[in-house]
């Protein structure tokens, strides 16, 4: 029982658990069969990121972060999922999946790539005051799994949700590395997200309007 000495404090344990929730939601998005449940998972993940921001704000006494947490709650938990769900309103409910790999294989890929992310970040000499260092590895894993989500799944919604959740991973990383970043920079990130929502919204509508499906499979057959 000698390791009992290095038990993380309640603070860092709780913070890491929240960062883990972000990563596990990313995995859940990767395997969720329904586009709508992917979007709900994205809202939940954003909620976890906002809570993490509040957590850091409360423990590190950084008041700017409260504003950021509030903004990202309104935007990423309420507005963006709401808009995307509305856009999907008249699309057929089909089981979107990867046409290349099974779910278990995708999860194993994702485990492999997050291990890679963990070790790459673990070898960096990053010391953070705001969050325990493993949170950066977790953020890296979120980003890499989000890439996998975009690459492996063959539907437009996954690509949009993958991109949005990529931003969540970056948010967690920024909480670790630069929790005291000026508010204006953080708000600029959120503005980027809004632009992305518009772009992906147009993409989804146009693709759905032309192909009558959300799957990107038909794009393989395009000829110039």
């Amino acid at each position: 029982m000698t390791l009992l000495g290095v038990v993380p404090s309640t603070f860092s344990g709780g913070a890491e658990a929240l960062a883990l929730v972000v990563l596990l939601t990313e995995f859940a998005m990767l395997r969720a069969p329904l586009s709508r449940s992917q979007i709900r998972l994205y809202a939940f993940q954003s909620l976890a990121v906002s809570s993490l921001a509040v957590f850091v704000a409360a423990t590190q006494h950084i008041d700017d972060l409260y504003v950021l947490a509030g903004l990202s709650f309104v935007l990423k938990v309420v507005l963006v999922p709401g808009i995307v769900l509305r856009l999907l309103g008249d699309s057929p409910v089909d089981l979107a999946g990867s046409n290349r790999f099974g779910v278990a294989t995708m999860v194993l890929f994702a485990i492999g790539i997050s291990v890679f992310g963990f070790f790459v970040v673990g070898s960096l000499p990053v010391h953070s005051h705001s969050l325990p260092a493993p949170a950066l590895g977790l953020a890296m894993a979120v980003i890499l799994v989000a890439f996998l989500l975009v690459i492996l799944r063959a539907d437009v919604v996954s690509q949009a949700v993958g991109f949005f959740s990529l931003e969540n991973g970056v948010s967690v990383a920024s909480l670790v590395v630069a929790a005291g970043l000026p508010l204006i920079v953080e708000v600029a990130f959120l503005f980027d997200l809004l632009v992305a929502v518009v772009v992906f919204g147009v993409l989804m509508r146009v693709h759905h309007g032309r192909a009558k499906t959300l799957s990107t499979e038909t794009l393989d057959r395009l000829r110039g």
């Binding site: 860092s12 344990g13 658990a17 995995f27 278990a104 194993l108 485990i111 291990v115 963990f118 493993p134």
Partner: peptide
């Protein structure tokens, strides 16, 4: 798929510990 989920949780537990965290 269910088993991949269990494996994911177990391997994450080891990784988090291995990286010096909780």
């Amino acid at each position: 798929e269910f088993m991949a989920g269990a494996f994911l949780l177990a391997i994450l537990a080891v990784l988090v510990l291995y990286l010096g965290g909780g």
